[in-house]
């Protein structure tokens, strides 16, 4: 998994690319840490460059949402497609994290 963002503006848009699995746990936590420090407002994860996600990846999205919501912001997802769309649809996480 790679992420790219200017960490400015509102919302802060983060491009998340590649494959999001258990192996990306540390890198993803680092991203959530940066967001907690630098992005007090709403955040959008753009997943259009994400090709695969596993259950640990879904868990990381939920964890990010929890952290962002707890400090008064909001997280939205956009650009889900392919396998990611299938997993997101099965898990019904739009009930937890809005999807554009």
């Amino acid at each position: 998994m790679e992420y790219r963002s200017e960490f400015t503006g509102s919302p802060v848009v983060v491009m998340i690319e590649g494959v999001l699995t258990f192996d990306d746990h540390e890198r993803f936590r680092e991203l959530v840490g940066i967001l907690a420090d630098q992005a007090p407002g709403p955040v959008v994860f753009d997943l259009s460059g994400l090709t695969m996600i596993d259950s640990a990846g879904i868990g990381m999205l939920i964890m990010a949402n929890d952290r962002i919501v707890k400090r008064g912001g909001g997280l939205r997802l956009r650009g889900v497609s392919g396998q990611v769309a299938k997993v997101v649809e099965l898990s019904r996480i739009e009930q937890l994290i809005p999807i554009d």
């Binding site: 879904i58 939920i62 019904r92 996480i93 009930q95």
Partner: peptide
Amino acid sequence: GRGLILGCLADA
């Protein structure tokens, strides 16, 4: 038939 994953939202 689909449903939310378990353990995230108490009133799901």
